[in-house]
Amino acid sequence: MSGGAWTLLGARTWVAWLLAGCYLAATVAQPLASWGAYTCHWAVVGAIALFVLAGVVLIATPGDPLPLWATIVIVLACPLACALQFSAIALPVQTSHQLWPVGASVLPYTFLCVRRRILAGWIGGISLTLVSLAWTGLTGQPAGTAISISILNAGPLMMSTLFAVTIVPAADTIYRLRAENTRRAADDAAAGAALAVRDARLRRLDRLVRPALDRIAAGPPFLDAEISGFLVLEAHLRDTLRAPGLVGAELDAAVRAARERGVRVRLHDDGGLTGSDPVVRERIHQRIVAEVNGVTDGTVTVRILPPGRRRAVTVVSSGAEAARRLDLGRDGALTQPAKSA
């Protein structure tokens, strides 16, 4: 799982959306509380819309650092909301609720710092002060008024900056270690599975080969049936090395039975089924088994074609009476009806 401090804070959960909704609702309630005192209500509505836009973009946009477009939207939306709100205030200011964008907007900028946009957060915070200074200057108020309503924003910004330079790297380390542990667990599982497969193959090889080796160790004379069995076993062992994609219990049994009937079976694997779906592989094996079981003499050649071919497998059988070819697609289905010659 990937993530960072933003994820560590739970900001990608439904709880974050709930808290953001509550904060936005509480903030919007401030201008509504003094609705009758404004000179231009559409400006207040515009300020509210811009502030809500900044909050939604902050929560909804994935990726850390926050994408540049989202950062620009948040940096610009809050000062514009502040300017629109100030334009609708009739002096003297009746209540501090009318100055809500100055204090409320510091929260998006605080979390901009957390989301690796420290410079953008400070630019936004400073822009709130500049907008406040412009408003007080245009309306003949002392500059100290603008400083007094915006200076408190410096505290949260400094706190978020400290958080960004200390906790954010620690969160990155936590997620990096988690990813490394996950990868290591996957590697261990893969190694364990490989060992299990190797052990299973060794046990199977022991069951197949030990009786023949014991018999050979006992020395001649060997019966014709024993020699024939040795040859069949040798061919099977060669198949496991030359055609690993054609190894399977049912297919092995069918090939062994065909060889015991005197049919010459040749298996080749050029890698076309490597990594294929086990269901498709089993379907192909069943097609081959049905074809091999129907051959009573001659030669059967089964070949897995190289990767990238339209066909996956060809089965060619030639006997005393006729030759027959079977082409299988990569989904295990016949690519065309079987041909006889």
Rank of each mutant, 00 (worst) to 15 (best):
A5P: 01
T7G: 13
L8N: 01
A11K: 00
A11Y: 00
V15Y: 07
A16C: 06
W17S: 04
W17M: 04
A20N: 09
C22W: 12
Y23H: 13
Y23N: 00
A25H: 03
T27P: 01
T27C: 10
V28P: 00
P31E: 04
P31S: 07
L32Y: 06
S34C: 13
W35T: 06
G36W: 11
A37S: 14
Y38E: 07
V44L: 08
V45T: 11
V45A: 15
I48Q: 03
A49I: 08
V56F: 08
L58S: 00
I59W: 10
I59Q: 13
A60I: 04
T61W: 03
G63T: 04
W69Y: 06
I74Y: 07
I74K: 06
I74M: 01
V75Y: 05
L76N: 09
A81L: 01
C82A: 15
C82L: 15
A83G: 11
Q85A: 14
S87D: 13
Q94G: 06
Q98P: 03
L99S: 04
Y109Q: 00
T110E: 05
T110P: 02
V114F: 03
R115I: 10
R115L: 02
L119N: 06
A120P: 05
G121R: 07
G125M: 11
L133G: 06
T139V: 10
G144L: 10
T145Q: 06
S148E: 12
I149D: 13
N153T: 07
G155Q: 03
L157M: 08
L162V: 14
P169Q: 02
A171I: 09
I174A: 09
A185K: 13
D188E: 15
L205S: 11
R207A: 11
L208T: 02
A212T: 01
D214Q: 14
D214H: 12
A217W: 01
L223P: 04
D224T: 03
A225I: 12
L231A: 15
A235G: 14
H236E: 14
L237S: 04
L237R: 00
T240W: 07
R242W: 00
P244L: 07
G245R: 01
L246A: 10
G248H: 06
G248M: 07
E250R: 12
A253M: 10
E260P: 01
E260T: 14
V265S: 03
D270K: 14
G272L: 04
L273M: 15
D277Q: 05
V279G: 05
V280Q: 09
E282L: 07
R283W: 09
R283P: 05
I284Q: 02
R287K: 11
V289H: 07
E291V: 10
E291R: 12
G294Q: 15
V295E: 09
G298K: 08
G298R: 10
V300S: 09
P306Q: 05
P307D: 06
P307A: 05
R310I: 11
R310F: 11
A312D: 07
V316K: 01
A323Y: 08
R325K: 11
R325I: 15
D327F: 14
D327P: 12
D331G: 11
G332K: 01
T335I: 13
T335W: 12
Q336H: 11
Q336N: 10
A338M: 06
A338G: 02
